[in-house]
Design a protein around this nucleic acid. Structure first.
Lengths: 362, 362
DNA sequence: CAGCATGACTGAAGCGCTTCAGTCCCGCCA
DNA sequence: TGGCGGGACTGAAGCGCTTCAGTCATGCTG
């Protein structure tokens, strides 16, 4: 195989092949797209000629123009790729999405976000996709306006409902409630909360009161809200609960935040973590500080990524069906593409996976 | 914003706007693409009218057809997304690529692989991209033929050279040599090797002699070769070195493999791991078995992902410039797109990052 | 043998845009 | 006042394909 683009300008087209075989262009097109429209002998002859001419099949762009469908779904992320993929939760969701979409011969256009918390509108405006999937964008992402301007159907994952969009969502608030309640039942009274981004500005640090209110990301809002509301109902004042906001969701950021939380006075006996990655970091931080989990401190994660079952100790965490989330999103996208109306939001269940990173307060 | 596709069939076009403003279609096009071609007052008027008509700018597909360029680069992966992204090394490379490409207003089309070790040829044939990047595909991936058939320029990362393609590569063999030599210098004499896939068939297990020879992935071939050749030169028979092949590159698979390696008799005093993720798993396996790293066993990784500096203990590993790799690939892709000839392969350096997971043999 | 359904193939009209050679007009200079 | 340069805008030819209404034999039915 030769990868030269020497004469990229003079590639054979349908007409070239048609002329060579001595049939009309429509027939060559049919040879590729509707085999039933011509005799199989002619079809063979056409395909054969095409091959010898170095014609690789109908040009995807021209085909898209003619059919008014690009057979691609766009995926919009809140951040750059390296940050986004540092949490396996996204990979799992995206994998679910990709396999669904791929099975229908659609491709996936990735649109990484930047500092605004989503892809640049110009990127969205020019993306060759006929349906968009937004993954956990902040409420006000300009990218969403760009999608609306183009009139493209939209599927949102982990985001507030937008008029006319399809949505798959997880009961984050409920999940957070489960985690907090469980720790309360174990007798814990002093807590620390380890969050990922509350706002799309890349800030890490203790979360001030302002930052805690009017949180930009729906997922963060629900998880943090679920934690604090539950604690408050049990008599733990939210103001007394230290919250660390990490600017992403990976181990190292989690370790950093947990170190801060675990060196507060009084030291929390339980840590609520917004993701498993952050929780893994917390496990590490505890170890760094010479603390034993769960004896000295209990840790609860969120997501139940596969690794949670194998960490040291295995992580108690809120389970959500990640792959299913991606698959559903894919199906919704395909459905919208086919002209379907957005169905009522799919709501996926959460549950608590109890493992060994939690114990009664000693 | 409303995300209804009600009248997706009757969207305004350039002509609609042109008619509304009372100018020619060419002028409207210029308003978007060549502001210098018309008076700014007219341009304003056009843009204003477009807005009020709900016209979101030139249709990307039609534009691509007219300009014969889709402004997108395709990225082909050897496996599904969840597997692929379980190793942060890929995320970092892809992030480097994406930011380069994105900076030039190109988008990224992701093509996940399947059991054949690459995307299905039909996907490649229909992808709307005008340059492809292949990431660590097996030597014989059908996807590569599909790219050649379309005559698209190709950039390969971590793969053998293909005629006419541009390439960015890392001195994997040399890196492996560095790792093995270092352990030899520390006095180690019994080794275990923890590899990721040697062949694209999803097999995990001890690597038989056949599987070790004629390895399908260039990276695996070079790293394994570098390890074994170096050991052999020092008098360690390759046949006596247990090699575990994991079917992917994540912690859990690493842990599994390392458990096997560390329970051989005699127990290796040093583990050579083909990636940091596998090495992290090995650290965990050692811990599981009550072994202390590096006292009881030394572990060396490969890649130097950011986390390697923070693991417990911090990992000795072969450093390769991951982000740079992605950036270079992006630049090459853009260059080919601009009609450049494939330059001579870029060869990125490796070095050994010595940290605390290695120690002299006791 | 007329009539007609059927299969095989074609002509031509788009799909929505870019681009380039013009056309036209205005103001300026000699 | 005539000539001319240049800015502003336009006409029309594609880009490579899909699709649909036909056309035209062919063979079958009654």
């Amino acid at each position: 195989m030769l990868f030269v683009d020497s004469d990229r300008r003079r590639r054979p087209t349908l007409d070239t092949v048609a002329a060579a075989v001595g049939v009309s262009r429509a027939t060559v097109s049919n040879a590729y797209n509707r085999p039933d429209q011509l005799s199989s002998s002619l079809r063979e002859r056409i395909l054969e000629t095409a091959r010898s001419l170095g014609y690789a099949g109908p040009d995807p762009v021209a085909r898209s123009l003619a059919t008014r469908s690009s057979a691609a779904v766009g995926f919009m992320l809140p951040q750059g790729l390296s940050g986004a993929f540092s949490d396996p939760a996204l990979s799992i969701v995206l994998d679910g999405l990709a396999s669904t979409v791929d099975g229908h011969d659609h491709s996936l256009v990735l649109m990484p976000g930047d500092a605004t918390g989503g892809p640049r509108p110009s990127i969205v405006a020019r993306a060759q996709a006929d349906v968009m999937v937004a993954y956990s964008l902040p409420d006000s992402a300009p990218a969403l306006d760009a999608v609306a301007a183009r009139g493209l159907p939209l599927v949102v994952i982990d985001q507030p409902v937008l008029p006319g969009s399809a949505r798959v969502e997880v009961q984050d608030y409920l999940g957070a409630t489960l985690a907090a309640s469980f720790l309360l039942e174990l007798g814990h009274t002093s807590f620390g909360v380890l969050m990922f981004s509350l706002h799309p500005d890349g800030v890490s640090g203790p979360a001030s009161v302002e930052r805690r209110s009017a949180v930009s990301f729906r997922v963060s809002r629900d998880r943090l809200g679920g934690y604090l509301d539950t604690l408050e109902k049990a008599g733990v004042k939210p103001d007394n609960v230290p919250v660390w906001e990490a600017r992403g969701s990976d181990r190292e950021l989690g370790r950093l935040g947990a170190r801060w939380l675990l060196t507060r006075t009084p030291r929390p006996s339980a840590l609520l973590c917004a993701s498993d990655q952050l929780a893994f970091g917390a496990l590490q931080a505890a170890r760094d500080l010479g603390l034993t989990v769960p004896r000295d401190v209990s840790v609860v994660g969120f997501d139940d990524v596969p690794e949670a079952a194998y960490s040291d100790p295995p992580l108690t965490t809120v389970r959500q069906p990640l792959a299913e989330k991606g698959r559903r999103a894919g199906e919704l996208a395909l459905k919208l593409l086919a002209g379907g109306r957005p169905p009522r939001p799919t709501r996926l269940d959460v549950s608590l996976a109890q493992r060994d990173s939690t114990a009664p307060r000693t």
